[in-house]
Structure formats: C-alpha cells, structure tokens
Design a protein around this nucleic acid. Sequence first.
DNA 1: TAGATTGTTAATCGATTAACAATC
DNA 2: TAGATTGTTAATCGATTAACAATC
Lengths: 216, 216
Amino acid sequence: MPINRTAPEPTIARLAIYVRTLRLARVEGVETLSSADIEARTGINSGQVRKDLSYFGEFGKPGLGYAVLPLYQRLARIMRLDREQTVMIVGAGNMGTALAGYSGLHESGFRLAAIYDNNFSKIGWRIWDLEILDIERMPDLNATMGVRIGIITTPATAAQPVADQLVRSGVRVILNFAPTRVATPRDVIVRNVDLTQELQILCFYLPESLLSEDAV
Amino acid sequence: MPINRTAPEPTIARLAIYVRTLRLARVEGVETLSSADIEARTGINSGQVRKDLSYFGEFGKPGLGYAVLPLYQRLARIMRLDREQTVMIVGAGNMGTALAGYSGLHESGFRLAAIYDNNFSKIGWRIWDLEILDIERMPDLNATMGVRIGIITTPATAAQPVADQLVRSGVRVILNFAPTRVATPRDVIVRNVDLTQELQILCFYLPESLLSEDAV
DNA sequence: TAGATTGTTAATCGATTAACAATC
DNA sequence: TAGATTGTTAATCGATTAACAATC
C-alpha cells in the first residue's frame, strides 16, 4: 500500500475522469467495474487505469474488479471532492458572468463564494444574486471567507496584479482564463485555460493546413 | 528544409504561443528575437523553440536570431491564422452566450458566424446581434456559410447528437465544452475543454491533499 | 575575424503500454 | 477448482533537454 508522494499530473487529470465515471455508474446501479469496463467507458487503457489507481492504494480484487461505491468514495476523498469547495471569481465580464451562472459548477460540488472586479461601474451590482465586490477588499473579506480557489477572468493585462492579490488573500490554486502566463510563488498552483489558443490549435488541423506552407 | 508531416501536438500548441509572442514583440517595435529571447518571454526552453520551428523550416540566421515580422507571418500562415476564421456555436446557454460576447475571439482573428440551439423558447432571439438559429437548419444553412469550426456549449447529454449534426454540416474541427467525450469520424479533430475537471484537478493540489488519504 | 546563435543529433527523461505472476 | 482480473515490473514509446558543428 504505497503512500502517494507525487503521482504524475496526467494521472491526477484522469482521476477526475474516474470520479465522474464512477458517479455515473452508481446512478445506473452498476455495483462493480473492471479496469476493462472503465476503459470501455472512458477510452483510457485498462492498464493505465490500474497504474493510475496504484499510486494511491489497492482498491480492486483480482478476478472481480472494483466495487463502484467504495472506489468512488475513496477517489473523491483523495481529490478533496468529498466536501463542498468554495471558489471566487475575479473579473465580472462576459466569461466571469457566464462562469458564475454555470450550473456545472454547483453540480460538481463547487460553491461560488464571491465575485470581484475593479471597475466602479460594476461594483455593487449583482450577478445571479451575488454582489460584485471591490477587488481592494479581497484580502480583508477573504480572511473571513477563507476561499482557497481563485478563478481569473480578466483581460490579459490585469491577470498578473490579480494573481498577486489572490495570493495575498490566501488563495492556493488558480484557474486562469486570461491569455497570458502569471507568475506565482512555487507553492501556488496555476492552471491555464486559453480559449483562443484552443481554437488556434484547431485551425492548424483544418484539412489544408496539414501541408507545409511551401507546399500550399 | 524538411516538409512537415506530423509535428507533435505539443509543438502545435506552442506554435500558437509563438505567434502571440511575435505579434506582441512586433507591437513593441522589436525586430529580432533569438530563441533565448523567446524563452525569456514564454518560459519555453530555447532548444525546444528551435526544435519546434525546425519542423516547419529554417527561419533563423545563426548568430542573429529570428526576424520578428517574417517569422510571425510564416507561422501565422502555417497555423491558418493569416485569414479570418469563422466559427459557430451550438448551445445558447450561459457558456455559449459568454463565448459569443468574448472580445478575445475577434481580437484573435475569429468571426462568429452563427449560434444554434434546439430550444424553441430561445430560437429567434438575438445574442449580441446574432439570431439564435434552429439547430435543425444547420446542414442547410452551413452549406452556404461553409463554417468548418464548431463549438459545443450544450449540456453533456446533448453533446453527441450535436457533434453528429456538426459533422453532417461539414464541420472539420470541434471545440467541446461539454463534460463528456464525443465520438467523431477519424478525420474530424475534437479538443475538449472541461472547466469543472480543471477545478477538480486543482482541488487535488490544495495543500492538505498532498498526503495520501490514509495519512490524513 | 570573433562572438553569437542556429539547426540537428544524441542523451535523458517521463509517461504509456504490454506482459504476467499473484490471487480472488 | 478454473476463469477472470488485479497490481506491478519490464519494454516501449515519445517528448524534452543538452550539446555542438555549421555558419551568419
């Protein structure tokens, strides 16, 4: 029963997929899944599934597979998804507003605790029942709220100062939608979601682009 | 001067970053960048930069580096970013509406040509000046519009039939925001952006979660 | 020319897949 | 028990980094 030190990051990403898959299987009334069953549902190689799980313990029974409910519970606990997690959004523009209203957030066990902006024409207004707060008040307010997950939905130019403010306020992990990298202390984890980059990558794969530029 | 057959996908993702970096450098009036300069601006190892570029040609001069404008133009062409690309959105919910209003789309050279939904209470209404269209009309309408990039912003349950409809309508690449995989013909490329998965991955990295569950 | 930097090859690193003894 | 499937080790694969001859 190995203790997890550092499972590879791709393993953690797949763990989230397993949790979702197991929850769905539970709803369907399925009580046991083999790694081959999980492969059928997720497309993730069955050996990969077993390898991923082995970073965290021995959850299966040879010849039988994995009991859905206990595995779900243990993985959810490992991922800290066994409790409601609170998040805050900085940037009450299009993306921030959409995210605030995104039902998947709640369905996945997240609660939006606050939304901040620096624009006085926005501060004080409400988005889906939540008042837009002055970003200057974040350190003070978050001393009480204790939110540790921050979401940046500002323009690129504001991302770095916002990240600094989040760190100052006690946030430990950041989901950054601004199309720029932000620098943080080493113990603060940042994941970047760059929508236009995703579209640009797809453009490359448009049929004709598979040729070299010279060959076009 | 090697012809590109298949550069690794991570290379393509970085290419998009180089394009953005070069455009910015141009605005700043910088005329030349070495691979070390690009590393300083992007955090991408200078050897990696040279390797990535070498998949597509020889763009630099030993001892001097890369001329910003020509490299920008050539990479933009390779990525098909030298022309306006049209996209369509399916799903006029929170995410679809936000994306439709996202200024970064236009700033990155994309034009939103259409937005579809299957909900009769939404069809006919306008989002940011664009009429919400009946998804049933997509194959017909797109025969004229010729949009090849589709964006799925529906609930998970609708994602697969929507993907099928997109493929039927001539779309070749898909950006999928629904938290589920979609199956497509092999020549249709899908990229998945799963916002709640990103948050769940971050949860794992919250300080206390670095221990194994047993050790907590 | 001398110094700088490319393009590319070789070495390293890390993650995925295959294979199989252990075991339910 | 016999068949099925785990957990893990070894083999493979692919991407990143280091190093350096070529050359501006």
